[in-house]
């Protein structure tokens, strides 16, 4: 029986994620309770907003200690993924350090934020099982993670960058699966099958 915990730290549009899971017939709890999170089979770490404030909220609830120690599959979404990195240029924020990467701002050569539907390429993870090269996903962000060792998919906006990261049980996606139509639903299903 899947028990999904969505980490609640006062940031992010959690409702649409809950609805997306409901459409997959999966029950979820929105929680900032340590034991509830630790006991879930899958943990989703969402995020919308600014890195600085979000990290402050994680620290004040002790979640910054809990998250990196989780053993079950964890999926960071958008800012959630960025906070799992070592450092973000956004508000010069130290992140959770799960991924070695740093988060940097898009150059002004492109419109910022990167907003809309873009494509997934070079996917290499069971997370993308059944998703075709070039599939469209919804992106909305001003900062990004360059391609690195942990990169498991790329998207091009000006230049290619990390659309998704993976290290051990930790996964991160820069796009919003809960807003990415059928492709997003497939990705969430793949995550829940991990």
């Amino acid at each position: 029986m899947k028990k999904v915990a969505i980490i609640d730290y006062g940031a992010g549009n959690i409702k649409s994620l809950q609805f997306a899971l409901e459409r997959l017939d999966v029950a979820s709890v929105v929680s900032n309770n340590t034991s509830e999170i630790i006991n879930a089979t899958h943990v989703i770490f969402p995020g919308v907003g600014a890195a600085g404030k979000a990290m402050e909220q994680l620290r004040s609830s002790g979640l910054d200690i809990v998250i990196p120690k989780l053993k079950q599959p964890v999926l960071g979404i958008c800012l959630g993924m960025q906070l799992m990195c070592r450092f973000s240029e956004e508000n010069d924020t130290n992140g959770l350090g799960i991924f070695e990467e740093s988060v940097v701002r898009f150059p002004a050569l492109v419109k910022i934020p990167h907003m809309g539907w873009n494509q997934l390429t070079n996917m290499r993870s069971p997370l993308f099982s059944g998703i075709e090269e070039g599939a469209y996903i919804y992106m909305v962000h001003s900062y990004y993670v360059p391609q690195q060792l942990d990169t498991i998919a790329t998207t091009t906006y000006g230049a290619p960058y990390s659309a998704a990261l993976n290290k051990d049980n930790f996964y991160g996606v820069q796009f919003h699966p809960e807003k990415s139509g059928e492709v997003g639903a497939t990705l969430l299903q793949n995550f829940l099958a991990l």
């Binding site: 919308v48 907003g49 600014a50 404030k53 800012l79 934020p113 907003m115 909305v140 962000h141 001003s142």
Partner: peptide, 8 residues
């Protein structure tokens, strides 16, 4: 923008 991010 500071509460929810520019993208919101």
């Amino acid at each position: 923008a500071s509460a929810f991010g520019n993208q919101c």
